[in-house]
């Protein structure tokens, strides 16, 4: 892989806090290595801003290896940038060439209010999990791990759904700002396993109810979420969630839902 350096123009969303209006600010960065990650390019920019006695750009990031789900930039119209199945922290600068202009915005959704610049508040996701995204088992109650065999296919599928990192790219990418992919991944993860079976109906109902309460849009099966999900969570999860919901709807047993 050929290494090279580039100069770039960045248009970055600046917003002081939740209440104030934001605007784009233009920055120039020079001599960026093609080996850098996108966030390292932002580090360079921020160092430059500190040196100029200006305020650096606030952005969320933590593990920088694509798993914590903290990073969240909307880059040139794409959640987590243009690479398939990739978080912003794993996007590398060899994607860009000298002279490019890159527009960077925060996740935009009313349910994800901006805290500052590119940082948004995603606590709505925690509250959705609180509504039922778990198996009610207290510590110490478990039977032997091999007591219940689980078909490999189901286990694998459950794992594929559980790979969700809760970054919110699905909401950011969805024209309706719907959180269905996130909710469906959790519902699928648990409903595919025998351990999650007893609560599957109330779980689907309650999580959807909470999702609505948080003000996310409704799913119209557009599929932009799937296209942008860094972990490849499939729309099949949404179909499964819908099935779970229908099952719960026709079941008298889910009276205690909502």
């Amino acid at each position: 892989m050929e290494h090279y350096h580039m100069n770039l123009t960045l248009k970055v969303w600046k917003q002081k806090n939740k209440n104030e209006k934001g605007r784009f600010e233009t920055y120039q960065v020079k001599n960026i290595s093609s080996e850098m990650s996108f966030l390292e390019m932002f580090d360079v920019l921020n160092e430059q801003l500190v040196a100029e006695n200006k305020e650096p750009i606030a952005f969320d990031h933590d593990c920088r290896e694509g798993i914590c789900g903290m990073c969240s930039m909307y880059i040139n119209g794409r959640a987590h940038g243009p690479w398939h199945h990739t978080t912003t922290c794993q996007l590398h600068m060899r994607e860009y060439k000298d002279g490019d202009t890159i527009v960077v915005e925060p996740w935009r959704a009313n349910s994800f209010p901006v805290i500052k610049d590119l940082v948004v508040d995603r606590q709505a996701f925690d509250r959705i999990i609180q509504a039922g995204g778990y198996v009610s088992v207290n510590t110490g109650n478990a039977v032997d791990a091999n007591a219940i065999p689980i078909e490999k296919h189901d286990a694998d599928e459950s794992f594929a759904s559980a790979a969700c990192i809760g970054c919110g790219a699905c909401v950011a990418a969805c024209p309706n700002a719907s959180a269905m992919l996130f909710v469906s991944a959790k519902v699928s993860h648990l409903s595919l396993l025998p351990q999650g079976d007893p609560e599957r109906k109330t779980r689907a109902m309650n999580m959807i109810h909470q999702m609505d309460k948080e003000g996310f849009g409704s799913c119209t099966n557009i599929g932009a979420c799937e296209a942008e999900c860094p972990k490849g969570i499939s729309l099949e999860n949404i179909a499964r969630l819908n099935r779970e919901y229908l099952g719960a709807m026709f079941d008298g047993g889910s009276q205690n839902a909502i």
Partner: peptide, 9 residues
């Protein structure tokens, strides 16, 4: 400001 348009759906 910049939309994904047909790139994602």
């Amino acid at each position: 400001a910049v939309k994904a348009g047909s790139q994602t759906s």
